[in-house]
């Protein structure tokens, strides 16, 4: 991003350049938007990821991300706001997969594999039938901090509200369903509805997170911070909070690295998260040995 990164010249009354106390990264609107979006995505993705990982359904996010690619391709092909077509495609896929899994029509991993490959194949066909790859489509594939719009931020903020309210209000139901769905059912919890709600929220999160992370890497932000959180605490509540904090640190640090080192944002974010996972594992081992 060399051209976009050239800072605006700040001149004083004498016309000479003065030092601006604000860090360079905050002097650009696109970076401020990326950071706000990054904080929201970093906080949200692991919250939902916690319940997916606990159900051993980690690859759902990766599968839905590939479905998202199909949604993006359709959006470009029919000239409709791609986030909208993506959200529709991912939500339908999430609900169908959940129904297939819960009714035992197919094993969970088989459902994911079928959805992943079929959506990827459909995306390739749609892209080929349209104009082929272009810069915008690539930005969805790998993420781009330059393309985050104000509308994206408003959508993210709205989603953040729903996720926080949804997860905190239905925390007991989500926790019990993840722990043992038979126990949850015998406690009177409507497990099928809880699972569907989680699938829809995961679909919305992936749709919006991929603007920053890219289709290929969005799953990492949903899974890796969760593994850090699960490793360092025994309590589910605390694990969710720790995972969110790790997600935020990963996105902010990753975006800063992307800005200053001129590297892809999605990749930088994931590498920071992986580094934190390695550190957390090392810390856990150290703590075990010393106790």
């Amino acid at each position: 991003m060399p051209t976009a990164k050239t800072p605006p010249a700040t001149t004083g009354s004498t016309g000479s350049r003065t030092a601006d106390p604000m860090p360079a990264i905050l002097q650009y609107e696109f970076m401020v938007r990326a950071l706000i979006g990054g904080v929201l995505v970093g906080a949200l993705a692991p919250v939902l990821g916690t319940f997916l990982v606990l159900r051993r359904f980690s690859l759902l996010s990766d599968t839905l991300a590939h479905v998202a690619l199909f949604g993006v391709a359709v959006g470009f092909a029919v000239n409709v706001y791609p986030t909208l077509t993506t959200f529709i495609a991912v939500t339908i896929a999430a609900v169908v997969m959940e129904l297939l899994r819960s009714r035992g029509r197919l094993p969970g991993d088989a459902v994911l594999a079928v959805a992943l490959y079929s959506s990827l194949a459909a995306a390739v066909v749609v892209i080929s039938a349209a104009q082929g790859f272009n810069v915008d489509l690539l930005s969805f594939l790998f993420g781009s901090i330059l393309t985050i719009t104000e509308l994206d931020l408003w959508l993210l903020a709205g989603l953040a509200f729903f996720v926080v309210v949804g997860v905190t209000a239905f925390f007991t139901e989500l926790a019990q369903t993840s722990f043992d769905d038979a126990l949850a059912r015998v406690s009177g919890i409507k497990v099928d509805w809880v699972n569907l709600g989680l699938a829809v929220l995961a679909a919305a999160t992936i749709t919006l997170a991929m603007r920053i992370m890219g289709v290929l890497l969005v799953g990492a932000l949903i899974v890796i911070p969760v593994l850090v959180g699960q490793g360092v605490t025994n309590s589910l509540r605390t694990a969710i909070i720790v995972s969110s904090i790790v997600g935020i640190i990963s996105t902010v640090t990753g975006l800063a690295l992307a800005f200053y080192r001129d590297i892809p944002g999605g990749g930088a974010i994931v590498l920071v998260a992986v580094a934190m996972l390695v550190l957390s594992i090392a810390w856990r081992r150290f703590r075990r040995r010393s106790s």
Partner: peptide, 25 residues
């Protein structure tokens, strides 16, 4: 699963569930 971050106390407390309670978290 050994990695499931939930304490014995939390599991037992979940047994008190009688219906939707939005402020449990």
């Amino acid at each position: 699963h050994a990695m499931f971050p939930i304490t014995v106390g939390e599991v037992v407390a979940h047994g008190r569930y009688t219906g939707f309670s939005p402020f449990d978290f």
